[in-house]
């Protein structure tokens, strides 16, 4: 075969898909409270008593309707984290998070679910640890939009040090 015959043809394409997403009544309550009052509400299963965030209508484990609302404190514990060196694009804004940054999973006190978010800590393994206490930092009132980005990040609570250091 000649070089011409082995030229493989391709065509670039970009697909832009618009969509409208409805939060539903349960998530609407949590997002509206977060936006308007800076408070975080989760929901409790009447059977297993698990406190679930984001709230959903049915407890997946017990198959019963979740009922009681529980306000969570804005403090929690880091259960897992990473120091991200890749410039991840936020698919909802198209803007990248500039690396390196700390990204982790926080369990708000009293909650059974964890929340993945940015951790405002130095991207240094010696300064972030599993078990670190953190608190929610919110966008200022009036600038909140009603999604998870109303939480800017978690920040470490002061006056703590890594165990064993």
């Amino acid at each position: 075969m000649t070089a011409r015959e082995t030229e493989w043809i391709s065509i670039p394409m970009t697909v832009d898909v618009p969509y409208r997403f409805a939060a539903g009544r349960y998530l609407t309550k949590t997002l509206t409270q977060l936006r308007d009052n800076g408070r975080i509400f989760a929901v409790e299963c009447p059977r297993c008593r698990r406190i679930q965030l984001p709230p959903r209508i049915v407890c997946a484990q017990c198959h019963v309707r979740n009922g009681r609302w529980v306000e969570l404190p804005l403090e929690g514990t880091l259960v897992a984290f990473t120091i991200m060196f890749l410039p991840l694009t936020d698919p909802t804004t198209g803007k990248p998070h500039e690396p390196p940054f700390v990204y982790g999973s926080v369990r708000l006190d009293g909650c059974d679910s964890v929340l993945d978010h940015l951790i405002h800590a130095e991207p240094d393994r010696g300064k972030v640890w599993v078990g670190m206490r953190c608190r929610v930092v919110l966008r200022p009132p009036g600038e909140r939009v009603g999604d998870l980005s109303d939480i800017v990040h978690f920040e470490p609570l002061p006056d703590q040090s890594r165990p064993g250091s």
């Binding site: 969509y19 997403f21 939060a23 998530l27 997002l31 984001p54 259960v79 897992a80 984290f81 990473t82 991200m84 890749l86 991840l88 694009t89 936020d90 698919p91 909802t92 804004t93 990204y103 982790g104 999973s105 993945d116 978010h117 940015l118 640890w129 599993v130 078990g131 009603g146 999604d147 998870l148 980005s149």
Partner: peptide, 29 residues
């Protein structure tokens, strides 16, 4: 990233690497 809820988690989605990295940090700890 379409796997994640648009209002709860999609802004940080698309990061399978981050997910397994957290698994690693949790496992080591």
């Amino acid at each position: 990233s379409g796997v994640a809820n648009p209002l709860w988690g999609r802004s940080m989605a698309g990061a399978a690497v981050g997910y397994f990295a957290m698994m690693g940090s949790s496992y080591m700890a």
